[in-house]
Amino acid sequence: MTAPMPVIIGVTLAILLGLATFLTWFERRLLGLWQDRYGPNRVGPGGILQAVADGIKILFKQDWIPPFADRGVFVLAPAIGMMTVLLSFGVVPVTAFWSIAGTLNVGLLFVLAMMGMGVYGVVLAGWASNSKYALLGSMRAAAQMISYEVFMGLSVLGVVMQAGSFTMRDIVLAQSGLWFVVPQALGCAVFTLAGIAETHRLPFDLPEGENELGAGFHTEYSGMKFGMFFLAEYAGVVLVSALLVTLYLGGWEGPLLPPALWFALKTSALVCLFVLLRAALPRPRYDQLMALGWKILLPLSLLNIAATGAILLLHAPG
């Protein structure tokens, strides 16, 4: 039943990169739909080739490195950003039989570690750019992503307690009776917020904050290196959606349809939710963002852990 590993890796990578590219178009169309306009609808049927056109354009742009930048780190940063997101996908189980390392016994920890590494991509980008806007953006990114990582890690602990495992596949299997979104509603909400902050998407895109910081941490980037950040962001959206599905929404499980389709359906619905957030919400002030994190989300996730632990202990056999 299980396909050979190189096939799985190749197909996953191709689908993921294709999806991230396609999402750049899809998001703009969806934003247009929700804002009573069209979005890109000229190139190809429904404008779907816009993503290709953008790709061609960005590939042929001059690959420029500012003379004041730290060359090595400047080139490395987008690669780190992209790599951590792609590696995280390794442990996401698409179905029971289709995943690269869904049975890794520290799967969830691996994802958290990769997200922690992802901060480096952003911070090093800002640092190596040697420009004030980029540095301010990456400082914000560092503070925001590191603090939200804390709640992200704490919020999934409830899931781990209930499933009794860090393995992604076992977590999904443990949800065959009841999806964790019901008993872990609080954790799910915190994880969603932290996930948005982690991918620094609107409304938590303060590291980019184009109205005050130019383009934030990638101000100095152009051409395909900027494209890498861009694709990494969209791949990150897919990743957080896929993680939400795996951890809280029962992964591939569902009636009638084949498991892979269920996984895709749930993930795309969440991606649409991400776009809806972007369409509807303004960006909070920076201190509001941090206050929300430390004053509300941290106590909530601690409460969630304590409550889950207490209930599990009460129901423990013996």
Partner: peptide, 22 residues
């Protein structure tokens, strides 16, 4: 308020687009 904003924006799916395809 945030949830209401999200819902209202979602409802805009059914609205007519104001763009004139030039």
């Amino acid at each position: 308020g945030i949830l209401r904003t999200l819902w209202l924006t979602f409802l805009h799916m059914a609205h007519r687009r104001v763009t004139v395809g030039y």
